[in-house]
């Protein structure tokens, strides 16, 4: 049990009463692994991911049933702000805070949570996190510049650093490289493989090559349902469901 970070138990999500966007999904996510979620557009990948850090609660009409456990604790028994600290999120479009400097962006999690830390410790966190995302050498002379001046790939890495700074148990990434060029993408892929030593990663991606390259486990979703969930090698070489196979050979999506 202790090597399971996240566990979905019969999770369903509905944006409006008559139609479920995510249908009865159950799955366990292994600790210190990368799990990719694939599936055609609109199949509910983002919806499932956003259920984990309770983002759906920002919008009043969304209904969730079932339960999700993070390190064995039911997330619904915790406060949403605690859950979100433990489950970091990186969005499809890089969204560094434009009113803050690069330095403050990395530390924004602390500022937002009202956590006071010493100057030296702050410098330490900023340097480590920017190192971890391979951004330190590029920005170390411009730490006081605004985050929005960076290139798209750099911005996305800044957002990853920002999420990592809070030392989350799990990192949820929703198509983090879809707005980036191949070079920036491969840098982030390398980074994720490095990072999985420290944090469990769940990544939504449309890029099958990416899933094959970096992920240990893969999920295939279709029309809100979890069709297949297996070791990545197994899924890519010998999928057990026809729909998975059709997707992997490019029949739809």
């Amino acid at each position: 049990m202790e090597n399971i970070t996240l566990s979905f138990k019969d999770v369903s999500v509905a944006y409006n009463a008559d139609k479920l966007a995510v249908i009865h999904i159950s799955a366990d996510i292994q600790k210190n692994s990368i799990t990719s979620i694939m599936g055609p557009s609109g199949c509910g990948k983002s919806t499932l991911l956003r259920a984990v850090n309770r983002m759906h609660e920002l919008y009043p009409n969304i209904q969730i049933t079932g339960s999700i456990e993070l390190n064995g604790r039911d997330i619904l028994s915790m406060n949403p702000i605690e859950v979100r600290r433990l489950a970091g999120m990186v969005f499809q479009c890089p969204n560094p805070f434009p009113t803050m400097s690069i330095y403050d962006n990395v530390l924004s999690g602390y500022a937002l949570n009202g956590i006071k830390i010493q100057r030296s410790e702050r410098d330490q966190i900023v340097e480590t996190c920017l190192h971890n995302v391979g951004l330190w050498d590029e920005v170390k002379d411009n730490l006081n510049k605004r985050g929005s001046f960076l290139s798209g790939g750099q911005q996305q890495r800044l957002c990853i650093a920002r999420a990592l700074a809070l030392r989350p148990d799990i990192l949820l990434m929703d198509e983090p490289t879809s707005a980036l060029d191949p070079i920036a993408t491969s840098r982030i892929e390398d980074l994720l493989v490095e990072l999985k030593k420290e944090v469990t990663i769940v990544i939504v991606t449309h890029n099958m090559g990416q899933a094959a390259r970096i992920s240990d486990y893969s999920m295939f979703m279709y029309l809100g349902e979890l069709i297949e969930y297996d070791k990545t090698e197994k899924m890519f070489t010998n999928p057990s469901d026809k729909r998975t196979e059709a997707y992997l050979v490019g029949k739809f999506g």
Binding site: N79, I81, E82, N113, G114, I115, K116
Partner: peptide, 9 residues
């Protein structure tokens, strides 16, 4: 660190 209850309050 500020307590969560304090922040929610």
């Amino acid at each position: 660190m500020k307590s969560v209850t304090n922040r929610i309050f």
